[in-house]
Amino acid sequence: MKTNAMRTLDQLKIPYQVVEFKVSKEHMDGEEVARLVSRNVEEVFKTLVVCDKDDLVVCLIPVSEHVDLKKLSKASGHKSLSMLPLNQLTQKTGYQRGGCSPIGMKKLYPTYIHESCLEQEVIAISGGHRGCQIIIDPHQLIECINIKVGDYVQG
């Protein structure tokens, strides 16, 4: 099943690989997803959607890390950011929890990715539905939706 993320990558002629896996429970942690898609945990990035009132910001960080909202606020020019309430995720992005891809959202929101992605040949990101990951060159991902690279994790 093609998702908006895959259709967008196809339109942009950006190569990617789709890896699908069986979803065993409501919420799976990133380490489990990495194992299921046969990737090192450093290669798997989660998509987080944060907000400042009505302004949305998308952030990709390694699944084993926690976002530093102060660093992300500073980088994005916001006074303060907080996680988007889960009940608004589908309405704002078109995706559901566990299947939220930074590509192909209802709108193109300012997007940020942790700099460690540049140390990887490929990274895995959500493919647009639960149980689906897209394996992609991080440089091509950054170019395709004009992602800003920096340090957005705690520590």
Score class of each variant (00 low, 15 high):
18 V>F: 09
52 D>N: 13
25 K>S: 14
29 D>N: 15
4 N>W: 03
17 Q>K: 15
146 N>E: 14
57 V>H: 03
152 Y>S: 01
30 G>H: 02
11 Q>T: 13
130 R>N: 15
2 K>C: 05
8 T>A: 12
77 G>F: 11
120 Q>I: 07
86 L>S: 13
59 C>T: 06
134 I>F: 12
155 G>T: 04
79 K>V: 06
7 R>N: 12
51 C>M: 13
134 I>R: 12
85 P>T: 00
23 V>E: 13
9 L>W: 05
123 I>A: 02
139 H>T: 09
71 K>H: 07
139 H>V: 08
145 I>L: 10
99 G>Q: 06
140 Q>F: 04
84 L>Q: 10
19 V>M: 12
106 K>L: 14
55 D>A: 09
8 T>V: 12
15 P>R: 09
131 G>I: 10
98 G>T: 00
32 E>D: 05
47 T>S: 06
2 K>M: 07
33 V>Q: 06
4 N>C: 11
141 L>S: 03
70 K>L: 04
77 G>I: 12
84 L>S: 07
126 S>H: 13
3 T>D: 11
119 E>H: 12
133 Q>N: 08
101 S>T: 00
81 L>A: 13
119 E>R: 07
5 A>S: 15
130 R>A: 15
76 S>W: 02
152 Y>R: 00
63 V>N: 06
26 E>V: 05
29 D>W: 09
96 Q>D: 08
97 R>F: 04
31 E>W: 10
83 M>T: 08
142 I>M: 06
142 I>K: 08
35 R>F: 10
26 E>H: 10
85 P>C: 05
91 Q>F: 10
43 E>L: 04
139 H>P: 03
62 P>L: 04
23 V>Q: 13
111 T>V: 05
37 V>R: 03
138 P>D: 07
141 L>Q: 02
144 C>N: 07
112 Y>S: 01
48 L>C: 06
151 D>R: 05
